[in-house]
Amino acid sequence: MEIKKGENRFYLVDEQKREAGEITWHLFEDHVWVIDRTYVSSDFRGQGIAGILLDTLAEYARKEDIKLIPMCSYAEKQFKIKKEYQDIIY
Rank of each mutant, 00 (worst) to 15 (best):
V32K: 07
L68M: 09
Q16G: 11
K80D: 02
A20N: 06
Q47I: 05
P70S: 14
Y85E: 07
I66A: 06
V34K: 08
K17N: 15
V32S: 04
G21C: 07
I89G: 01
K5T: 03
E15Y: 11
K63D: 15
K77I: 07
G48R: 00
N8M: 09
I35S: 00
R37L: 15
L27I: 12
D14W: 03
H26E: 14
R9F: 01
R37W: 05
K80C: 04
I66E: 08
M1I: 05
V32D: 00
I89W: 01
I52A: 02
T24I: 10
R9W: 02
T56D: 01
G46E: 04
L68N: 07
Q78W: 03
M1D: 03
N8F: 14
E2D: 11
E84F: 03
F44G: 01
T38W: 05
A58H: 04
G21S: 03
M71T: 10
Y60W: 13
Q78T: 03
R37I: 04
R9Y: 01
I3D: 00
R62D: 07
D30M: 11
W25C: 13
A58K: 11
K4I: 12
M1W: 03
E19M: 15
G46R: 05
V40S: 08
Q47S: 05
V40T: 14
E59A: 15
E76K: 14
F10W: 02
I35R: 06
R45I: 06
Y74W: 09
I49C: 00
Q78E: 13
Y74Q: 09
A75E: 10
L68A: 08
K80V: 05
V34N: 12
Y11Q: 10
